[in-house]
């Protein structure tokens, strides 16, 4: 029974039934979760920003940090567990991407993260079957590898499933 804890810009995958993949306090960051029913593998990446063009060096060092480099990096990681390299057959779920209220849009990084991720997923022919995005609160996410169950929590709210 292990816990894989992902920080900002980290990605990871596991097919050990006792494992949990976890990330803390998503604010405007978005967590992308891939569930592969064929190999029973769970993968997750903790995306901070939509576009790697602002800092290529950071994208090379930590591809999970930016939406456009995160998805390819996670898919490559998951091929080590026998998953399809273009994500065929995988179930995709998204959560996080909270926003502060800003009418002129600048601070809507959560929204821009989610959009950028969906665009990249689309280029792979993938789309999310479930999402828990937006709102004005932070989320902690735990995925159990054995059941593929995703549990979200936020202070002051009862836990919920995705």
């Amino acid at each position: 029974m292990g816990k894989i804890v992902l920080g900002v810009g980290d990605y990871g995958a596991s097919n050990s039934p006792g494992d949990e993949v976890k990330t803390f306090a998503l604010g405007s960051c978005v967590s992308v979760i891939f569930l592969d029913p064929k190999t029973r593998t769970v993968g997750m990446v903790h995306v901070a920003l939509p576009d790697s063009s602002i800092n290529k060096a950071k994208a090379t060092e930590k591809p999970g940090y930016f939406a456009d480099t995160a998805i390819p990096a996670l898919l490559t990681q998951m091929t080590k567990f026998g998953c399809d390299k273009r994500g065929k057959g995988m179930v995709v779920k998204l959560c996080g991407g909270a926003n502060v209220m800003d009418t002129n849009d600048t601070f809507q990084i959560g929204k821009r993260n989610a959009l950028a991720i969906k665009k990249i997923l689309w280029s792979y022919g993938m789309g999310a079957v479930a999402e828990d995005l937006g709102g004005n609160y932070s989320r902690t996410v735990v995925v159990s590898v054995s059941a593929g169950q995703i549990t979200l929590s936020s202070p002051g709210k009862p836990n919920w499933q995705l």
Binding site: A25, G27, S28, A98, N99, F107, G110, N136, S138, P155
Partner: peptide, 15 residues
């Protein structure tokens, strides 16, 4: 937004 609030109040303010 970067995930470093102080618990229950995180992101629950007006800009």
């Amino acid at each position: 937004m970067g995930g470093f609030g102080t618990g229950s109040d995180s992101m629950r303010y007006k800009l």
